[in-house]
């Protein structure tokens, strides 16, 4: 890891005092006259501005000496820790869980391969974003929830994996993703909200000092309202009864998701379900699109940054 400072000349930490440039006039209201308790304070001639005509005050201030703003830190030249120092504690560790909710209905056929590629790339980009800044990623896991439409596909509307720990189970993850085929689904909309609910109730890791719980949705259709009688009882028991209850589950500070660690990334069109989420829920980034189509690299980088860095 290289630690280096900002060497931009314009960013020098303690620049010499210079006349203010293009600044509004100092408003008298900003400066208060001496308060009663110090009204008797004698003037301090030595502290008067060196240039009596200078409009700016603060001329009493000079760069602190020694001005030791470091523009670089070469670990090789840093003073070695004296033996008397208490051992340096290691930095905090991060555990990252990512759940991919992928629409695998027939309408996704033209783009399913691109979505699979994006899923395989996404976790790697998140991990790189974390480690580039020296964060210690202690554990990275991913799982997949492929969904269709319970009304049209019944039990076949859902394919779930357990969490794969990466990189150890990379091959199993790849095999699961590769095996997904876009078919069925009937007419729009699809059972996307059920998939999100199941993702929220994942067996999130308890390891690590800090966590990221990330759900990523790719779909090209609006979402069915929750509460459909077509949902099999075994799945229905794990899904809130309606959108309000789903919102409560997302926002519940005592629920399965940490208020700071959760992120929901939606690559989904505007429409029922998805627009409701992005308009109301916290910690959501929504790219209104057909499963991420047209996503710019800038916006993609912004999304990854919103997961890897503090917000």
């Amino acid at each position: 890891m290289t630690i280096s400072g900002d060497t931009s000349p314009s960013d020098a930490g303690a620049t010499p005092i210079e006349p203010p440039v293009e600044m509004p006039e100092v408003t008298p209201s900003t400066l208060a006259p001496p308060t009663p308790d110090s009204a008797t304070t004698p003037a301090n001639p030595a502290a008067a501005p060196s240039d009596p005509g200078a409009a700016a005050t603060g001329a009493d201030l000079t760069p602190a000496e020694p001005d030791a703003v470091q523009t670089s830190l070469d670990p090789g030249t840093a003073a070695p820790p004296p033996a008397a120092l208490v051992p340096v504690a290691t930095g905090l560790s991060y555990s990252v869980d990512i759940v991919f909710c992928i629409d695998v209905t027939g309408s996704m056929s033209p783009i399913i391969d691109a979505v699979k590629t994006n899923a395989m790339r996404f976790y790697d980009d998140v991990q790189t974003n974390l480690t580039d800044k020296g964060k210690n990623v202690d554990e990275l896991r991913v799982r997949v929830i492929a969904f269709r439409d319970f009304a049209a596909d019944g039990e076949a509307a859902l394919e779930e994996s357990d969490f794969f720990t990466l990189p150890d189970h990379q091959a199993h993850f790849s095999t699961f993703v590769s095996g997904l085929t876009a078919q069925g689904g009937g007419d729009a909309p699809e059972s996307g909200l059920e998939a999100v609910a199941l993702a929220m109730n994942s067996s999130w890791t308890m390891r690590g000092d800090r966590r990221r719980q990330v759900i990523v949705v790719w779909t090209d259709q609006a979402a069915q309202p929750l509460g459909s009688s077509a949902v099999p009882p075994s799945i229905g028991a794990r899904v809130p009864a309606d959108f309000s209850a789903l919102t409560d589950l997302w926002e519940d500070t005592q629920g399965p998701l940490g208020s700071s660690s959760k992120r929901l990334i939606l690559f989904a069109p505007d429409g029922p379900g998805w627009s409701d989420i992005s308009g109301v829920w916290e910690n959501v980034v929504h790219h209104p699109s057909q499963a991420g189509g047209g996503l710019s690299e800038v916006d993609y980088g912004t999304i990854v940054d919103s997961i890897g860095n503090s917000v």
């Binding site: 203010p20 600044m23 900003t30 400066l31 208060a32 008067a48 700016a56 005050t57 009493d60």
Partner: peptide, 17 residues
Amino acid sequence: RRMMQLLDPEWHLDGPR
């Protein structure tokens, strides 16, 4: 730049303002 204008040894800074 702004704080250099506002700080004056002979005037008390009005914090809220």
